[in-house]
C-alpha cells in the first residue's frame, strides 16, 4: 500500500515536472528555492518576519488555546529536509542504483496507472490532469471571491462555512468540493 502510494506520488511528480519544463527532474530546485525565498534576508534559517507574523496571527486566531507555533523552527527544519531531499546529483543516482537492484526503477515517463483513472472522494474516478484543473479552478474561484470582498462587494465568502482543510469536510459534515 505504501509502495503503491509512493509510486503514485512519483508518477504525479514526473507528470507535473514535465509540464513545468524546468529541466532534468534530478536537478529540480523549485520547492527549496521557493522556501528559501520566504527566508529572512539576513538569516536564511529564519522565516521573513512579516510572513512569520502573518502565519503566527492566523494560527493564534484559529487555535487560541494552544502554545504559539515555533514558526522559525518549522522553517529551519523544512530547509534541512529540502537539503536532504534535493541532494540531487549525489543521492539521486545512488537511490536509482539501489532501486534498480530492488527491481524498482524511477520511470522517465509517468506510468498511466498512476495518473489515469484515480479514485476521488465522491466515489468516481478521474485523471490527474482533470483533478489538477478542478483544483486550479477552485483556487481561482476563491481568489475571485476574495477580490470581491476586498472591494467591499457582496461575495460568497460572506457566507462561507468553516471547513477542515485536511479533510475537505465543513462544519455541516458536507464534503465541500466533491458532493
Amino acid at each position: 500500500m505504501l509502495l503503491e502510494s509512493v509510486a503514485e506520488s512519483c508518477g504525479m511528480r514526473i507528470y507535473v515536472h514535465k509540464k513545468l519544463n524546468l529541466g532534468a527532474l534530478e536537478f529540480n530546485r523549485q520547492i527549496s528555492t521557493n522556501v528559501t525565498n520566504t527566508s529572512d534576508e539576513n538569516n536564511p534559517d529564519r522565516m521573513d518576519p512579516d510572513v512569520a507574523q502573518l502565519w503566527q496571527d492566523l494560527l493564534m486566531t484559529m487555535y487560541s488555546g494552544f502554545q504559539p507555533p515555533k514558526i522559525h523552527d518549522w522553517h529551519r527544519a523544512m530547509r534541512a529536509v529540502m537539503k536532504i531531499g534535493e541532494s540531487g546529483n549525489v543521492l539521486f543516482p545512488f537511490a536509482r542504483h539501489v532501486a534498480a537492484n530492488q527491481g524498482w526503477v524511477y520511470p522517465a515517463a509517468p506510468e498511466p496507472q498512476y495518473i489515469q483513472g484515480l479514485k476521488v472522494p465522491n466515489g468516481s474516478t478521474m485523471d490527474f490532469e482533470d483533478i489538477f484543473q478542478k483544483a486550479l479552478n477552485n483556487v481561482l474561484e476563491l481568489w475571485g471571491w476574495l477580490a470581491l470582498s476586498l472591494q467591499k462587494q457582496k461575495s460568497p465568502l460572506d457566507t462561507l462555512t468553516s471547513w477542515d482543510l485536511d479533510t475537505g469536510i465543513d462544519e455541516n459534515n458536507h464534503l465541500v468540493y466533491w458532493s
Binding site: L20, L22, G23, A24, F27, N28, R29, T33, N37
Partner: peptide, 14 residues
C-alpha cells in the same frame, strides 16, 4: 550544465 539549468529555470520563472 543540467544542474545549473534546473536552478536557473526555477529562478527564471520567479
Amino acid at each position: 550544465s543540467a544542474k545549473e539549468r534546473g536552478s536557473l529555470s526555477t529562478q527564471m520563472v520567479n
